Simulated scan of single mutants.
Amino acid sequence: MPKRRTAATALAGTLLVVSLSACGGSSGDTGGVDDAPSAAPHSGYPVTVTNCGQTETFTKAPSRVVVMNGASVAEVSTLLALGLGDRVVANEQTYGMSEVPGRAQAIKALPTGGIKLNDAYDIPREAMIGLRPDFVLSLTSYGFEAKNGFATREQLKTAGANSYISPQGCDDEPSKMTLADSYTLLRDMGKVFNVSDRAEKLIAASQKNIAAVSSKVQGAKKPKVMVLFSNMAMGSNAFSAVVANGIVNDILATAGGTNAFASASRTTFADLSKEKVAATDVDALVVISYNDPDPAAYAKQLLKEFPQWPAAKTNTYTVLSDSMYLGPSNDLAVAKIAKMLHPDRF
């Protein structure tokens, strides 16, 4: 997912009134459980989670949770999917749209703590301590670096707060992230908040849905897909928001496709020239919206700009948002992309 390091830089309350018992639906559909009864505050504790080489011990379920920005929605969406929205005292993750009905609105309705973000687009150290959190979530280790003006994990522990860095975020470069990491995040939060049963139901639903889609596209030719963020710049070249590695590649592979620019960079994003993009065969386009009100217009603009692409000749594109990130609804992205790439299989 994008890491917001420059002005646009960045890679999921009640979402739906649906019971977790409805495991036959998508993981997104079964994610609307904010109204589920809270776990007993002391049952099953203490619990210990080893995270990025640090041991975090919880004597009770956190009740004052702060979610750092990180230009992600993975952490807040996971908390909401597990019915833990009432534990959040400050959430800095926002999103303009979602594949899950009601999710964007639920995120917007969460308290922000009245925090003014610093120049690194996240919660400064003094403001963080002032929130009196007992649990702080960050997408990567970046959110706990003192040089960026943030409270370190050690400072938070001294203030009485546990902390957590999401899977593959220890080195602040989630280029190796896979679908399994979304399940790890769910399981870890299930353990921390003593709601492991909810986490396992969400995981089972997602795995079932993905397996069903994957079986339909098995053996099919794998089109080359370009994945990029809508109207976003992350580097010096014209196409610096093209995704080269990370969970996106796992989603594409499961949906019966391949990343057209996977070899263009070893990191999450490829910073590409227009000439490089023009010279690459792109069979399909996936535009990820990050607070862009009209990502479809951006997709159409690209297809018009590169008429030589097979994607342009067949008008093959789709727009996605949070389901392409680490988070609880990756199965929705897999299904939508697979249907775009292999409509004859559905």
Score class of each variant (00 low, 15 high):
I107G: 04
P101W: 02
V17A: 13
N291I: 10
D283W: 04
Y95Q: 14
N69I: 00
L332Y: 02
W309G: 12
E200C: 03
G190E: 03
A333R: 01
A220I: 01
P167T: 07
M1D: 09
D34N: 13
L84T: 08
S263E: 15
K313Y: 06
R5F: 07
F239E: 09
K221R: 13
L186P: 04
G113V: 13
R266I: 00
V66P: 06
K224I: 01
E200Q: 15
P111I: 09
L82A: 07
V49C: 03
K274W: 01
D181A: 08
G85Y: 11
T50G: 00
N69F: 03
T178N: 02
G70Q: 07
G70C: 08
T59N: 15
Y298H: 14
C170D: 05
L185W: 03
I115G: 06
I107Q: 07
V89W: 09
L320M: 14
A205P: 01
K221C: 00
N259W: 11
V89E: 12
Y45K: 05
S163A: 15
P2N: 11
G143A: 11
N118E: 02
T158F: 00
V195M: 01
A74S: 15
A284F: 04
P41K: 05
L11Q: 11
A104I: 08
S289W: 03
V67Q: 07
A262M: 08
M128Y: 09
N231L: 02
T254K: 14
K276C: 01
A104H: 06
A297H: 03
K191N: 03
N194E: 01
V225F: 13
P307K: 07
R132Y: 06
M340N: 08
N249M: 10
L332K: 08
M128Q: 14
V65G: 06
E126Y: 02
S26I: 04
R125W: 02
A233S: 15
P295N: 09
F58S: 10
G130Y: 05
A211P: 00
H342G: 07
N245R: 15
G114V: 12
D134I: 09
L185E: 07
E154G: 10
E154S: 15
A36F: 09
A284Q: 08
A262K: 15
G143T: 12
S182W: 02
A241Q: 08
N291L: 13
P167G: 06
S98K: 09
G85A: 10
Q168F: 00
A10L: 08
V89F: 10
P101Q: 05
K147W: 06
E145S: 13
V213H: 01
H42C: 02
E305L: 13
Q207F: 01
K191F: 00
K201V: 05
Y290N: 15
D172F: 02
D322I: 05
K116Y: 00
P328Y: 10
S21W: 01
G235V: 08
G130C: 08
G32V: 03
M226E: 12
V282T: 04
S26R: 06
G53S: 04
V88Q: 08
V47M: 02
G31N: 09
K191A: 05
L80C: 06
S265V: 04
P293R: 06
G246P: 04
P124C: 06
E92V: 01
G85C: 11
G102K: 05
T178Q: 09
L11F: 12
P307W: 07
A270Y: 04
T48V: 11
R266Q: 13
R103E: 15
K222G: 10
A61D: 07
S72C: 01
E200W: 03
S240Y: 04
V248G: 02
A311N: 10
